[in-house]
Design a protein around this nucleic acid. Structure first.
Lengths: 311, 311
DNA sequence: TTGTACGCGTTATCAT
DNA sequence: ATGATAACGCGTACAA
């Protein structure tokens, strides 16, 4: 008939809301959007609804968001790209199961291999290693790193590049770190590197890399002809930019799905899954191919696995 | 002290949840992500939390989502890019105030100027008019339209181009319509136009335009040298693509904010605001400038208002 | 099998 | 002013 049960009464009685909370820095960002999409999809599959709050990478906002989730007594909470200390987050979450997807509290940079249970992160070190091996194999020796923000991920990626160069070729690189939203200003990004360009620039993520490529073009510097550039994440536009961007696929939607599933299991009584590191894959495209020109002959350089990422 | 009120009990007693529901096609999409961001921001400002559901532009999913909102008794609901009939949506929303942001039910194409209250849309006609005037002024006469999906917006944009050409230069254009997610396959997009290229291609949105530009490049066809291309929405990558994309700014975040505010007012007892059409602005960039080459001389062609859109 | 009563936490009302 | 009480709608437990 027409009967619609009342979730509030049901929640009051059952002491659970069948609701999850997801706290992320920004809906507009392609990566976080994918995390949110995967999270909501998996949650819906398990019969859960999702409350979203954007925290803007600000610890104060994150605290307020956790308070909201606490009042609404969500059955579980996920924080994506968490800038708070994981311990504080856990304590502020009260009794709610908590999953942190991509813990980014700056001091964590040196302890990412010893994270507590309920954390999920991408394999940043492996990603940078794959990038650097590819660039070294292409004959490049003078490297630069372009970072953004003060996150643990950013530090680890930069440190991994440093370690690789030290171990493999006994060289150092120049690292430049910008504000988290610097990618919106291509001129600033390109200017940050100064006049003396290295041969290869490893960027913290795709947004920054695409912005850099544009900033360089505005100065008459061509990628990959004058300098090669790599990104991280494989956002959709990395596959159709000019030049197509060599990058590391991080499977953001899978990360969201796994976070939701972990929470659902924890609510069902399972112990919170141990810290998980998600595998990543290098996709080689035009931005690191010295021979790339804008002729029809450029087609088909992308490696096989990459095609499936252009969904 | 440590006291945390229980929202479920409060909701049961007060008969309101201080929660809004937002139904959108896809979190990963840059435009809908902006709508979501604005909506959540404005809702939070008024003390409301937001439940998000992704409907995937599928009427069946949209119906299920509305049912979820009904059970959870959200105080109001917004549907972004609604593919259902607005009448059906309203009836399925029961007593909940409903705002439709960008009503896209296909049959609505001819009645977008006579929408019921509680609807918000962008001024598609004005956007295409500004685009076409710019292209005509640049001397172009042979036009193509590249659309995607079966939405009312898509129909209106195509129809507006047809009307402009008929009235101003007594010409017709060739219109090609692809599937909604066709932009993910640049080769398919470029192939859809066939061998005989027009002088100017007006695209339904930025994703399609950027994909087209890439597909054309793979075939050795250069933009704007061989053909000029325009988009719609001004997603962030339109400002840093190569070439920078001439497009129409639609202020997606503002649309989300307005939707939330309209709902909050309606909940407070105000009548639902009458149908609103949000203004749009043309941003002229490289993709329609015949003289654009990849030299430093390209810098600074963007018109003043555009700079503020690259936030 | 079908029915009835109680309690979840809050708030509004009413009596002191 | 301060404190006791009822009701919101559902689920469960126990009785018939």
């Amino acid at each position: 008939l027409e009967y619609v049960p009342n979730a509030a009464a049901r929640a009051l009685r059952a002491r659970r809301t069948r609701t999850l909370g997801l706290l992320l820095p920004d809906f507009g960002d392609p990566v976080h959007g994918q995390v949110a999409a995967g999270f909501e999809q998996e949650a819906a599959l398990a019969g859960y609804s999702v409350m979203f709050v954007a925290g803007g990478a600000d610890p104060a906002n994150e605290r307020r968001a956790l308070q909201v989730f606490l009042e609404r007594s969500t059955d579980g909470v996920c924080i994506a790209s968490c800038s708070m200390d994981p311990g504080e987050a856990r304590s502020r979450a009260g009794g709610m199961p908590l999953v942190i997807a991509q813990p980014d509290h700056p001091p964590l940079a040196r302890r990412l291999d010893r994270l507590p249970e309920g954390t999920i992160r991408t394999d940043d070190a492996s990603g940078v290693e794959q990038v650097v091996r590819h660039l070294l194999a292409s004959g490049h020796r003078r490297f630069g790193y372009l970072g953004a923000g003060a996150t643990a991920s950013n530090s680890l990626r930069s440190a991994t590049l440093a370690r690789m160069l030290r171990e493999d070729v006994g060289r150092r690189h120049r690292a430049v770190n910008l504000a988290g939203d610097a990618w919106r200003s291509p001129d600033t990004v390109a200017a940050a590197l100064g006049a003396a360009l290295p041969e290869a620039i490893v960027c913290y993520d795709d947004k920054l890399a695409l912005s850099l490529i544009d900033g360089l073009r505005r100065r008459g510097i061509r990628v990959p002809h004058d300098v090669v550039v790599t990104g991280f994440d494989d956002i959709p536009f990395a596959a159709i930019s000019h030049p197509h961007l060599t990058t590391v696929v991080t499977h953001a939607a899978d990360m969201g799905r796994l976070a939701a599933r972990t929470l659902v299991n924890a609510i069902a009584g399972d112990a919170l899954a141990p810290a998980t590191v998600l595998p990543v894959e290098l996709v080689i495209r035009e931005s690191t191919l010295p021979g790339a020109r804008r002729t029809p002959g450029d087609m088909g350089v992308e490696r096989a696995p990459a095609a499936s990422n252009v969904r």
